[in-house]
Amino acid sequence: MKYLLLIYGDELALSETERQDCYAESMQLARDLHSNGQYLGANPLHPTAMATTVRVRDGKRLVTDGPFAETREQLGGYFLIEAKDLDEAIAVAARIPMARKGTVEVRPVIEIPGLPADARQP
């Protein structure tokens, strides 16, 4: 089963050195997951200051700069993994560096037949 591990934290909590260390540790985790067939994807996100929120209400598109809501923790990145069950996904989530400073939400992915395949795969 696929799981999306959503990484939340205070985007201002890390120094640039800590951020680079977090990226390096996350890249090693991605390599480890790839070597055992669990890695499907991962990326950090730009800060919420670069976000744009889109809503459609009564047929009208509403576009707002910034995130939908002000929160103490912001979505900062994700890992998409393959895991045999929730316990295995939780074990991977606990290895994500930001789990020590923020929160990692583990969500099973609903796979809908007929969606286009990942374009990066042969």
Rank of each mutant, 00 (worst) to 15 (best):
A93M: 06
N36H: 13
D85F: 07
Q28Y: 05
L5Y: 04
I81V: 15
G114C: 06
A91P: 01
R31E: 15
V56A: 10
A69T: 15
P113T: 04
G37E: 06
G9W: 09
P67G: 12
H46L: 14
Q74P: 00
A30R: 10
I112A: 13
L40D: 04
G114F: 07
K101F: 08
G76K: 02
L14F: 14
Y23E: 10
K84P: 00
G102T: 06
T64S: 14
R55F: 04
E11C: 08
Y3D: 00
Q28R: 15
L80P: 04
R31L: 11
K84V: 14
L4Y: 06
A42G: 03
E88S: 13
G76I: 09
P47E: 07
G66V: 09
Y3C: 00
A89I: 01
Q121A: 10
Q20Y: 11
L75R: 05
I81N: 01
A30F: 02
Q121M: 07
L12V: 02
F79D: 03
K60P: 00
A13P: 03
Y8D: 09
E105R: 01
K101Y: 11
A13S: 15
T103E: 05
C22H: 12
A117V: 04
R72Y: 00
D32T: 13
Q74S: 15
Y3R: 00
P108R: 11
H34E: 12
D21A: 15
E18V: 06
D87Q: 13
L115Y: 09
E16A: 15
G77K: 08
K60I: 11
T64P: 01
A13L: 13
R120Y: 03
E88T: 09
P116V: 05
I110K: 09
V106Y: 01
I96H: 06
R95A: 10
E82F: 00
I7D: 04
L80C: 04
L6C: 14
A24W: 03
M98A: 10
M1I: 05
R57G: 01
Y39K: 02
Y8I: 08
A91S: 14
A94L: 12
D21I: 12
L29Q: 09
V56M: 14
